[in-house]
Design a protein around this nucleic acid. Sequence first.
RNA 1: GGCCCGUUCGUCUAGCGGUUUAGGACACCGCCCUCUCAAGGCGGAGAUCACGAGUUCGAAUCUCGUACGGGCUACCA
Length: 498
Amino acid sequence: MSTDSAVRVRFAPSPTGKLHIGGARTAIYNWAFARSQGGSFILRIDDTDPTRSTEENTQIILRALRWLGLDWDEGPDIEGDYGPYRQTDCADLYREAAQKLVKEGKAYYCFCSAEKLARDREAAKARKDSFQGYPRTCRHIDPAEAQARVDAGEPHTIRLAVPEDRGDVVIQDAVHGEVVFNARELDDFIIFRSDGTPTYNFATVVDDARMKISHVIRGDDHLSNTPRQVIVYEALGAETPTFAHISMILGSDGKKLSKRHGATSVEEYQKEGYLPDAFLNYLALLGWSLDGETTIIPREVLAKSFSLDHVSKNPAIMDAEKLLWMNSSYMGEMTDAEFVDRILMPELTKAGLEHDSEPMHEREWYELLASIAKPRCKLSGDVVGIAHFLYEGDKLTYDQKSVDKNLAKEWAHDVLRATTDVLSALGDDEWHEEQIDRAMEALPEKLDLAKRKVFQAIRVAVCGNQVSPPLGSSMELLGKEQTLKRIAYAQESFTQTA
RNA sequence: GGCCCGUUCGUCUAGCGGUUUAGGACACCGCCCUCUCAAGGCGGAGAUCACGAGUUCGAAUCUCGUACGGGCUACCA
């Protein structure tokens, strides 16, 4: 535990791929923890592996984090007092730190080749030895001799000398509680590769210590690495932070999340039409709960009330259905105006139905459309399918099945004729949802037909499908002229005149 | 192989020794609303709390073991 009271947490992705769901949740927890504690959230790019890290991935990750609405206080693009914020810019720092440890006898040069080590490991495995790690061969080489071999250019790595008498490494994990490891089970692990680059367990600790990180919140896969890192902190003479290891996210079959489970990257969810707030809410709840009752948790509440002791220990299976529900729920909570600006216009424009420069209708028209589209959308793009019939003009596509079932009937002709009569009687200033509905109200009785028959016939005539938004509002949106035109066309083309 | 972690309705979870006939959410089913589709309202079904011992007057909650799943054991992160 840090004596420095300032809470500083970091999210440190390696840009070896896009930001996946698990990483996103780790970022969310770090961010929410920082915000709830009034601390700092730091973004660091852990790109020590030059062969797999790319600048493109870094940008994708940054973009995904911004989309999620996670703002960081220090990072590669926001210089703070603890830079650099990319590990590739820290090469000298790691080298100096490692050499200092060698000088102090806390680390040593190892000349064993990777091939030999692999062979030894295989042999130990074959013998079923209980200890299959590094036998500390080079630990006992005289320092002067080792230095001479290094100076002569002999390939070498640097290994940390785990203190013989270290005993138990006890970790007070904020989500798991006390976890005990025996230092004897730890190898003298490599902290510097023969190519002169630091390994993960070394680089992160150097950086976390340098950046005064107070809480390390990361995936469960690092729990077993933690004792190694604690040893590094101790060798460095740095204070160990509080650790919090969060569980993994699994696919629907309980296996590790992969492509065959569908979308795995944040980018894909964005493209599929999920709202950042809904996505954030869903992910936050996957392994954390506010009180066990509340499911809709706005980001401000998350940023205020997140706490590590409500983080669950067990792995969570990603539930796409619930995410979808969450998304529709967030859309439903928007005001019509918000829905128009954030969903409707962008989607209609993307679909080529509207153009940025000049909207085809008045603002009220879009807000009315928003009010009927909202409860019918699960994903942003769904509005296009709902609104499409309004943009088809005279070239409405009629669904054949709907026509067969509702228009190609003996009653349909009369229904449409009677509808035309009552609607024509409405003045232009009366062309509103309520008036339209009222005008058509008496039709079933007048025609002595079931409501369902009557309105479904009208629906198909006007919307082209037996499934559509409510008739009154649909007609209002369509306009009197277009509505009557469609009815006339349908009557002529599909109905049977006895 | 060794070490470490996890195990409450199908899924996410509440639960921190008695208030529990184990609560909520998604999904599912039914009813209501209704001109279709949604949304909404009401209700239902669904968990021998992985299993087995122990501690205790009392255990989903504490301890130990077993099983199953996962992680680490790399010159990956």
